[in-house]
Structures are given as C-alpha cells and as structure tokens.
Amino acid sequence: MRVMHNMTSDLRPHAVSYRERLSPSLWVLAAAAVSAPMVTLVFVPLDPTVALAAGVGVALALVIGLVAASPVIAVEGGELKVGRAHVPVELLGEPETASGEEARLLRGPGLSRTAWHLLRPGIDGLVRVPLTDPDDSVTEWVFSTRTPDRVAAALRRARAS
C-alpha cells in the first residue's frame, strides 16, 4: 500500500521565502556583447562564416557566463544564503536596510573591518545583518540587493518561524 504525504507540510520548512539573482547591469551585458564584432574581425581573414559564428559564440558565452556566475541571495530552509556563503537565521540579529547616501556610507567608511560583505556595483540597496554567534569573528553581514525591504521582511519571517 502506498502512503500519500501531505505535500504542503513537506515543502513548507524548505520553501523559499526570498530569492534574487544579482545579475550584471544592462551596460555590462552590452559591453560583453560588443565582443562579437571584435572577434569576427579577427577571424575574417580565415573565413567570413567561421568569423561570424566565432563572434556570436564568444559574445553569447560571455553574456551567459556573466549571468550564470552572478551571486544569488536567498532566504530558504532556515538559512540566509548570499552567493556561496550561508548562515542559519537563528544566528542573525535584526536586519537593517539602506539606500542612497546611507548605503554609500555603509559600503565605504561605515563598513566594519569585521563584516563579511558582498557588494555589487550598480545596485543601490544594501542590507546589514548583525551576527549573534559569539564564537564567530564576523560581526555582521553586509550585502547588496535591489529590494532591501523584501530581504529584511523575509529574514524577519524566517526568524519568527
């Protein structure tokens, strides 16, 4: 006899409450795409068809590589994941959000030397989360995000459950 499980209860503890890919700006992707004519010009003396295929292939590889290598921010399974780093939400304090001038200060002179950080150019929003683990030499996480309020709300929900 096959036993059916309640899929909602099985999925709820590991449900993703927030996920964001910090993909490059359109200007960076456009700059990568500009490699197509340059590569094409290099290979034109060999064969124009090969040159065109090589140019398009290199440009596509660069754009796909830039997007695939972009870090992901996620609050899932009781953890905050920023890029390859992760920490249980139980070890996090109250998240703070910043944008504009306040975020610029936190990225520069206001950045603690004991902070772990992932800062992306072109992304204005910032979240700062203190760590409450006394055995950890890192005192806070500071990372870029396009929607700092949504990240903070997801962290508060994850900590409450």
Rank of each mutant, 00 (worst) to 15 (best):
V75S: 02
P13H: 07
M4T: 15
S17M: 09
R12Y: 09
A68S: 03
V89R: 09
T8H: 10
T114M: 10
G77H: 08
F143L: 01
D133V: 07
S70E: 09
W116E: 10
E96R: 00
E140G: 08
L11V: 03
V87C: 11
A158Q: 07
T145W: 06
R128V: 08
R21G: 09
E76C: 07
W141N: 03
V151A: 04
G77Q: 09
V44G: 03
E102A: 14
E102T: 15
E90H: 12
A33Y: 14
A15V: 14
S112H: 05
G122D: 06
L11T: 02
P37V: 00
A152D: 00
P45N: 07
H117T: 11
P37A: 03
D47M: 00
A54I: 00
R113E: 09
V42M: 12
A59Q: 06
V151F: 05
P48C: 06
R159V: 06
A68K: 03
V34K: 10
L118H: 08
L22R: 06
I73G: 02
D136F: 02
L131Q: 11
D136Y: 02
K81I: 12
V58N: 01
E20M: 01
F143V: 01
H86W: 12
R107Q: 04
R159H: 08
I73S: 04
V75M: 03
V75Y: 02
R113H: 07
A30C: 14
S23G: 11
V34I: 14
A74W: 02
E79P: 00
G55C: 04
I64M: 04
V63Q: 05
L105E: 13
P134Q: 02
R159N: 01
R150A: 14
A33V: 11
P48E: 15
I123R: 03
T145K: 07
G122L: 05
F43C: 13
E102S: 15
A32V: 08
Y18P: 06
V75F: 05
R120H: 14
D133Y: 11
H86N: 12
A31Q: 05
A31E: 03
R113D: 09
A158S: 11
L131W: 11
A31N: 01
P121S: 15
A153P: 00
S35T: 12
V138M: 07
S144P: 04
R113Y: 05
L106Y: 13
P95G: 09
V63G: 09
M1H: 07
G65Q: 03
E94D: 12
A31M: 06
